[in-house]
Design a protein around this nucleic acid. Structure first.
Length: 732
RNA sequence: GCCCAGGUGGCGGAAUUGGUAGACGCGCUGGUCUCAAACACCUGUGAGGUUACACUCGUACCGGUUCGACUCCGGUCCUGGGCACCA
């Protein structure tokens, strides 16, 4: 019997498919349509590993099946090409990230072709291609040109808001906007200068400028991702990092929080992913309550889900960053408060949330007044209160909240007993089924009714109001980076304005270095003539998620130069029927893409609200890792059968150096310089005893396949040894 | 720390309104065929135990509910994902 010469057969098939363009998809057809999409990859320098094709092969099988069943199948592929790794490489080597990216993409396409994936390559897109990001910039400008009308529950053009201001100011306006927007009438609006009008509009735009907290590294002169920070120091260079406020472009995604929640009920995604999005959006019902301050006409506003426990408030806590802190500290408390703020300032939110063991805080010296009892309530600051959630201040009810209880216990603040059946000397009681006691007009009520009663009383007394609060925050959109879409905004006398459409794409300029400028401007600050009509152009770029929030639309009409995609093509292909990709995108990409889709629907650019009808998460591939055992404190290794005789540390070794558990010692010694001089204790394979003529065995364990575990299998190797079908079948 | 998911043979994985745990496949064992192997086919394959049966144990761990628990409840551990500038 003759061998199956897979290499020849596959080569022939690839040529045939390419020459005859067999996977080319038409935008018109008598057949019903089916849109199968993979989450497009970031083209990293390492190439595809066997984890990538897991989803691609699955979706490819579905595509082929649907074609055979008589569907017109759209099954495209492209590249999410903007990103940090290419920029880092550019910083190190000076090579333009576009070049690296292009090389990596070439390799990816080749690898995908070898796997035999049936993409319509005529539709390939790359987010870093100016012909593509021209439309990412255009969408940004649509967002800049929009505000959110809560009464109609949709985004509308900013001209219509201006029209409203001309008539009424912002009186009676129901719009999603920043906190603390001043009230103004039509006259005030019309008499305001351009600068002030621009500032007012900024409070309403869906893409807007605001101050936001960022990780600033003074030594590198740049903003860092949490990912680039290890143990409070920059990964590059190990420099200290601090939190700093910076003016950033933001996205008013909060306007869509309720719709993003509701939309989940209409799509076929796993409950796990939906749950993650729900928790991320984090809707909670409760009340905003204002506490007056003693000897100060300012008020502290707090959000609480438990207004029924208001009689249990024995102190208040502000986030160290809270704007009122500076105003209310009494002179004698200033030194230790300032010391505390300095300490808290440089802890990340993650650290602050994770650290529940240590209780810390400081007394401001100020007192608030209880809205119902008139009691004096001490005001503290503590870093367990986060500035970014709610109002950045809480009313502390140690009898009903665990963290408040620990705080009160630690600082010996009073703990009031307001929930029936509690032992407040031992713990807080957060039961939601008990009755309220020692609470004036709320006495004897169950939690649910007490909450309603409390809100009624607050509203009646003008002390507060019922409120739905979301944990979701508006998204920071600016990146202090080079390798991203330039934000198409210029500043005329400091007033941000949209670049005219005919000048899009606003292309990335050449720079001498991919680093921030000396005075801490982003890399685009290095570009010569980064101006429009003599006005400076925005120097931040867009985040990675910008290009990936709408790419599924571009595949429908990838070469259109006059619009992001022709409406009749969008109406034909509609939503993605099957979306395949990793679950790690649950609260990032998948949420942002839903947000932009809802927005494009509102402005009537597309005819549907949800981008991805059905989502399947492909899971991950595991690999068998190999270990060698290093004797502790020595540059010596022992064969696996001997490790119990020594105190050893297991170290990952590249699986490619191991055959049938036996390590290739020569290869290993050449792997890293420190291993050249290492000692190796061999074992006799017959009896497992030490033997100078024996072999060196490795241990093994099944783990996630990852570069850091040295257990990665390259698909190219599998294909050249066994053929594409073997890889495909094995992965399935 | 918080949120989400998961933990079942050597491996991938079946089985849940609570009713024979390990379907199916891979691998491995033995056999048939062959000079021999590969292929193919047949057989066995959770662990202990037995000549063989019996029997005992067994779904991460501890406990509970139940006539009966992989499944339900309480607690614990571990792994993976996310925690807002990685993609």
């Amino acid at each position: 019997m003759a061998d199956y010469l897979f290499a020849d057969v596959e080569k022939h098939a690839r040529k045939l498919w390419a020459d005859q363009n067999v996977y080319k998809t038409d935008d018109q057809s008598e057949k019903p349509k089916y849109y199968v999409l993979d989450m497009f990859p970031y083209p990293s320098g390492a190439g595809l590993h066997v984890g990538h094709p897991l989803g691609y092969i699955a979706s490819d099988i579905v595509s082929r099946f649907k074609r055979m069943k008589g569907f017109n199948v759209l099954h495209p592929m492209g590249f999410d090409a903007f990103g940090l790794p290419a920029e880092q490489y550019a910083i190190q080597t000076g090579q333009h990230p576009a070049i690296t990216t292009e090389q990596n993409i070439k390799r990816y396409v080749e690898q995908m072709e070898y796997i035999g994936l049936s993409y319509d390559w005529k539709r390939e897109i790359t987010t870093s291609d100016p012909a593509y990001y021209r439309w990412t910039q255009w969408i940004f400008l649509q967002l800049f040109d929009s505000w959110y009308d809560k009464s109609q529950d949709k985004a509308r053009p900013i001209t219509e808001l201006i029209h409203y201001f001309d008539k009424n100011g912002n009186v009676g306006l129901q719009a999603q906007c920043d906190e603390n927007v001043p009230a103004f009438d039509a006259t005030a609006w019309k008499s305001a200068d351009e600068q002030y009008q621009s500032d007012l509009l900024m409070h309403y735009r869906l893409a807007y400028l605001a101050e936001a907290r960022v990780n600033w590294c003074p030594a590198l002169g740049t903003v860092l991702a949490n990912d680039e920070i290890k143990d409070g120091l920059s990964e590059r260079g190990g420099h200290p990092v601090e939190i700093r406020m910076m003016r950033q472009w933001m996205m008013r995604i909060l306007a869509y929080s309720q719709r993003l929640l509701d939309g989940l009920n209409e799509i076929d995604w796993s409950d796990a992913i939906k749950e993650q999005q729900r928790n991320w959006i984090g809707r909670s019902e409760g009340a905003l309550i204002r506490f007056s301050l003693e000897g100060n006409n300012q008020q502290i506003e707090v959000f609480t889900t438990r207004p029924d426990t208001i009689f249990g408030v024995s102190f208040m806590v502000l986030a160290p960053e809270h704007a009122l802190v500076a105003e209310i500290i009494t002179p004698e408390n200033r030194p230790h408060i300032e010391a505390y703020i300095t300490k808290a300032k440089n802890r990340s939110e993650r650290e602050r949330m994770a650290d529940v063991k240590t209780v810390s805080g400081a007394f401001t010296g100020a007192y608030a007044i209880h809205p119902f009892t008139g009691d004096k309530i001490p005001v503290w600051i503590a870093d367990y209160v986060l500035a970014s959630y709610g109002t950045g201040a809480v009313m502390a009810v140690p009898g009903g909240d665990e963290r408040d209880w620990r705080f009160a216990n630690h600082f010996q603040l009073p703990i009031l007993d307001i929930i029936e059946g509690s032992d407040i000397s031992l713990a807080a009681n957060d039961s939601k089924t008990s009755r309220i006691i020692n609470s004036g007009f709320l006495n004897g009520l169950e939690v649910k009714t007490a909450i309603q009663k409390a809100i009624e009383a607050l509203e009646k007394g003008g002390l507060g109001k019922g409120r739905i609060q979301f944990r979701l925050r508006d998204a920071i959109f600016s990146r202090q980076r080079y390798w991203g879409e330039p934000v198409p905004i210029y500043f005329e006398n400091g007033i941000p304005k949209a670049m005219p459409d005919h000048l899009l794409p606003l292309q990335l300029p050449a720079v001498d270095k991919y680093l921030p400028t000396e005075d801490g401007e982003p890399p685009l600050g290095r570009a010569e003539n980064w101006t429009y009509n003599g006005h400076p152009i925005e120097t931040t770029t867009m985040p990675g998620w910008a290009g990936s929030s709408w790419y599924f639309l571009r595949y429908m009409d990838p070469h259109n130069a006059t619009t992001f995609a022709e409406r009749n093509k969008i109406d034909y292909w509609k939503q993605v029927d099957l979306y395949m990709g990793g679950a790690e995108h649950a609260t990032g990409h998948l949420l942002y893409a839903r947000f932009w889709t809802q927005f494009l629907f509102d402005r009537n650019w597309i005819g549907f609200k949800e981008p991805f009808k059905k989502l399947v998460n492909q899971g991950m591939i595991q690999g068998q890792s190999k270990f060698i055992y290093r004797v502790e404190g020595k540059n010596a290794f022992v064969s696996a059968g001997l490790k119990n005789n020594f105190k050893t540390t297991a170290i990952h070794v590249d699986v490619n150096m191991v055959k049938l558990d036996v390590l290739d010692l020569e290869q290993f010694k050449n792997w890293r310089t420190e291993y050249e001089s290492a000692e190796f204790l061999l074992e006799n394979p017959e009896n497992g005893e030490i033997s100078s003529t024996g072999i060196f065995k490795c241990g093994s364990e099944v783990e996630k396949m990852s570069k850091s575990k040295w257990n990665v299998v390259n698909p190219d190797d599998i294909i050249s040894q066994y053929g594409a079908d073997t890889l495909r079948l094995y992965e399935m």
